[in-house]
Design a protein around this nucleic acid. Structure first.
Length: 278
DNA sequence: CTTCAGGGACCGG
DNA sequence: CCGGTCCCTGAA
């Protein structure tokens, strides 16, 4: 299946640190939630997709339906964000779905990206089904039912204190019939899960549910805010107050601003480390 | 070998 | 609100 795209880069999008549901192969990206799918960007304007999926699903999961021009023009409010936008051409915000993002970001607590990936890999090899796509073996992303039914296997993934949080989340989704009616309702319900605080919840809303107004604040965003938006958040202390202020500032697509700034902050970290080594 | 920080959340004061 | 503590890993 061929999907035409415009101003899109799959590498930029999937290496942004927003999703752990895609794995990079030599010449493409695989994701195995229900069925394995393989996506390659063969040119600037074309994706090739293999696997049992649909154009609609791929477009949804890669944020291809977002009107990126409109989004950028609405968040492009100062020099800092302007530069960040210029440094990440082709970026989109993914839509991983509720469970996948919930598990991913519970696992992200007090962890760096390689560690999160490693944990997902471990869980996939413990619970996942193995299938092949174009001769490549891939394990499915663990489901909450699998974890609910075999909680004793969790220890093997060495999740540390996050293990009980993962169990909480799996049990919750197993027992609760969540309707995707309005985002506020879902927020309230998910907040009941032990291990899901403000930051994890914002990540789930943004990268799982595609609520583009969500604005997660982690240590990287905090650094950027103190460095470049100090006057704006002056006097604000709590997570909720700072978040509210930034959403007021960036508007309905604050989530995109957040991801551009996040990528920028981490890129500068890499620059410094490179500088140190030389 | 040890030490320590790392995409936060909880709990007690 | 604030601050100690939580488990595990990889880097130093």
């Amino acid at each position: 299946m061929l999907i035409p795209v415009k101003d899109f880069s799959i590498d930029t999008t999937l290496m942004a640190g927003q999703t752990f549901a895609w794995k990079r192969l030599d010449d493409g990206w695989v994701s195995f939630i229900d069925k394995p799918i393989l996506v390659r960007q063969i040119s600037e304007n074309e994706l090739i997709v293999t696997g049992e999926t649909s154009r609609g699903e791929i477009e949804r999961r890669l944020g291809l339906k977002d009107d990126i021009e409109k989004i950028i023009s609405s968040i492009d409010k100062d020099e800092t964000i302007h530069q960040a936008i210029l440094h990440s051409p082709g970026l989109r915000i993914v839509e991983d779905g509720l469970w996948v993002s919930l598990l991913s970001f519970v696992l992200s607590i007090q962890s760096n990206i390689p560690l999160i990936k490693k944990r997902i890999e471990a869980l996939s090899s413990i619970y996942g089904r193995k299938e092949t796509i174009e001769g490549k073996e891939v394990f499915s992303f663990p489901t909450y039912s699998q974890i609910y039914e075999h909680p004793e296997l969790l220890k093997r993934a060495k999740l540390g204190f996050r293990e009980k949080f993962v169990l909480e989340a799996a049990n919750f989704l197993q027992k609760e019939e969540l309707q995707i009616e309005n985002m506020e309702k879902i927020r309230e319900k998910l907040f009941e899960i032990k291990g899901v605080g403000d930051k994890v919840l914002d990540c789930v809303m943004l990268y799982g549910m595609h609520d583009l107004s969500a604005f997660p604040i982690d240590v990287w965003i905090k650094r950027i805010l103190h460095e470049h938006y100090a006057s704006m958040i002056n006097g604000l202390k709590s997570y909720k107050d700072i978040r509210k202020r930034m959403i007021e500032y960036f508007g309905d697509y604050a989530g995109y601003a957040q991801l551009y700034l996040f990528i920028e902050a981490r890129a500068r970290r890499s620059d410094r480390m490179f500088f140190k080594k030389n």
